[in-house]
Amino acid sequence: MNEPKKLHSRGVLDWFDPRGRQVGGWGFIINRISAIGLTIYLYLHLVMLGKLAQGPEAFDAFIATAKQPLILFGELLVIIAGLYHGLNGIRIALTSFGVAVRYQRALLIAVVLLTAAGSLFFAIRMLSIH
């Protein structure tokens, strides 16, 4: 009956605005950001594999740049994102089928704690190797 009216919404921007969101909402936001991050990383990773195909010199040059601190920091981010996204993925998969939904907040906190612990572990290893 009424012609479709414009929703009062910023659309996809509201996906990323943490203001006024609660624990579950933050989990949602970080999952989206980590997913985008991982996808970008996947692309970079494929580029790197491409270098490998160009021969050993190109690869060595690439490894040299990859050892710069900034890049290392980036790798750490990938680890954090991967851990969070993977662990949260398990949380979502569980709750999606009605398992432990009432504990989704506690699960999310566990996801974050595990991610922090795992990231710390990898960070220390990265530092001690180089």
Binding site: Q22, V23, G24, F28, S96, G98
Partner: peptide, 24 residues
């Protein structure tokens, strides 16, 4: 699964949980 619905519901409906149970 943002669970914002359950967080704001003023009337004890827990829609987030109910959606998941409905999936089941």
């Amino acid at each position: 699964s943002a669970y914002e619905c359950t967080a704001v519901c003023p009337s004890n409906v827990q829609p987030g949980w109910r959606i998941m149970d409905l999936r089941r």
